[in-house]
Amino acid sequence: MEGHDFALWEKRVDALMVLCSSKGHFTVDGLRRALEDMGADAFEKHSYYERWIAAVNQNLIEDGVYTLEELATRMDEVAARGATYGEAAHG
């Protein structure tokens, strides 16, 4: 269980969390509330940064930064770009 290299997408989740928090779109307490609302099994089923991106997203929608529809549309577009993270993220 020693530290491992974080994947690029994980570092990006971390960066989005810090940046959006410093810009006032949510507080760490808001993130924690979203994490706790996911239920106990989320901690078994999902990895650390998977839970954090879910919490960041939940808070951004609540803050009105974008809508659930915009997110869904964009996630479909992303999936259509390719089968790997590299292709879907445009590198």
Binding site: W9, R74, M75, E77, A89
Partner: peptide
Amino acid sequence: NDEALTYWQRMEIAVRELLIEKGVT
């Protein structure tokens, strides 16, 4: 970055792109 794209990675990409487009970052 050549493993199968996961649901959460799709969400990260989508959230990041929306934040950039909305001028948040």
